[in-house]
Simulated assay, not measured.
Amino acid sequence: MKARITGVATYLPERTLSSAEVERRIEGYVPQRGIVERLTGIRARHVAHDDQQASDLAAEAARRLDHDGADLLIFASASQDMVEPATAHIVAAKLGLSCPVFDVKNACNSMLNGIQVAEALILSGAHRRVLVCSGEVPSRAVRWRVRDRTQFAESFAGYTLSDAGAAVLVTADAGRGIFYRAFAADSTAWEVGTLPGGGSAHPRDEEYSYFRGDGRRLREAFELAGPDIFRNALKRTGLGWDDFAVVAVHQVALPYLRVLAETLEIPADRLVVSLPEHGNCASATLPLQLALGGWRPGDRVALLGLGGGISTGVLLAEM
């Protein structure tokens, strides 16, 4: 028995914000005009309505799939509606599902890890039809009143992020499905990028409710982790990137994406570039690229994950 991805859907809020509009919205410190798009390649990002929560975006995506008969729902997202209960309960209630539920959380790799957990539970025989969904609403944690250049740089990651919902249906299949997965982490770098508020460390201080990070240190952390986890996936399966219809890579900035693609020698016609028009959709990024990619049933796809913390992951599947 294998676990196969039998459905992928996304929900992108219709409201968008250009990088120029982002810069004009910042109060206090005035950033150099055009700097966000120049450094990241992002032209636009999606913004949820004020009354939409993370669960709403996940539910909207899930409604676009045939999720009848799902015997488990996993909400896998960096965002959440509230600290308690698990957002999975709220999504299930909105979908009218009565199956078991729980949350998986690992920054931008949340969906990739959610699929990993779904596969493991299917292979164990515990479940046969798992709905993995995400609702990312990072727009609620962007710092718009900026004190100075230092605080702007510390808050810069927030100006790249985009709201989005995603859903993936993982089903037991006797024929094809996920055939390789590998994950790694360097948790000594967890402080490089954080959203500190809402937990036991900073439960109620508004100052800690914004994204903060060091882009240079984050890039260095990923460079130190190295690309071997992705190269080994090819070595151990005897495949090349040309054997995949879609190679989905988590994307935070076009310059870094180009470096990674060149290092791994990923052909341009296999790479789905979602960043310019959709921004960094956090954990919804890989499902979004699958939805945008031109694969057909039976094709192979590769999912390459990069997440804060920091973590990396790769999953290869026959659709």
Results as ranks from 00 to 15, higher is better:
D299A: 01
S311F: 07
S274A: 15
R258A: 14
C281V: 12
D269E: 15
G298L: 05
R258P: 07
T263P: 05
G279A: 07
L288R: 07
D299R: 00
G309Y: 02
G307E: 01
L260I: 13
Q289I: 14
R258M: 10
L275T: 06
L286I: 11
E262V: 09
S311K: 00
G279T: 05
A261N: 03
L257P: 03
E277A: 14
F244L: 11
L260K: 08
P267Y: 11
T263I: 00
L286R: 14
L290N: 05
G305D: 01
G307H: 04
P255N: 09
L304H: 00
T263S: 13
L304M: 13
W241N: 03
H278Q: 14
S274I: 09
L304F: 02
I266N: 03
V259N: 11
V273F: 09
L264V: 11
H250P: 02
A268T: 12
P287E: 06
Y256M: 13
G308A: 15
Y256G: 08
E277V: 08
P276N: 08
L286P: 06
L264G: 06
A261I: 05
L286S: 09
R270H: 01
A302I: 03
E265P: 06
G294W: 03
L275G: 12
R296K: 15
F244W: 04
G313V: 01
I266Y: 00
W241A: 03
F244M: 03
L304G: 01
V301F: 02
A245G: 13
A248W: 01
Q289H: 09
Q289W: 02
T312R: 12
A261S: 15
G313H: 02
A268W: 10
L304V: 07
Q251K: 08
G305N: 10
N280G: 05
D242V: 07
G308I: 04
D243Y: 04
G293F: 06
V272N: 00
V301D: 03
R300T: 07
A282E: 12
S311G: 15
A268P: 05
L260V: 14
D243T: 00
V272P: 06
F244G: 01
I266K: 02
G313Y: 02
T312M: 15
C281L: 15
W241V: 02
Y256S: 14
R296I: 10
A291K: 15
W241T: 00
C281I: 10
G294Q: 15
V246G: 01
G298H: 00
L254N: 11
S311E: 05
P287A: 04
R270M: 04
A302H: 04
P297T: 08
G294L: 11
R258T: 11
L257F: 02
P267G: 11
T285I: 03
A282S: 14
G313F: 02
L275S: 09
G307Q: 10
T263E: 13
V272G: 07
C281W: 04
R296Q: 15
P267L: 08
P297W: 10
V272D: 03
S311Y: 00
Q289S: 04
E277Y: 08
G305W: 06
V246Y: 00
Y256L: 13
G305H: 08
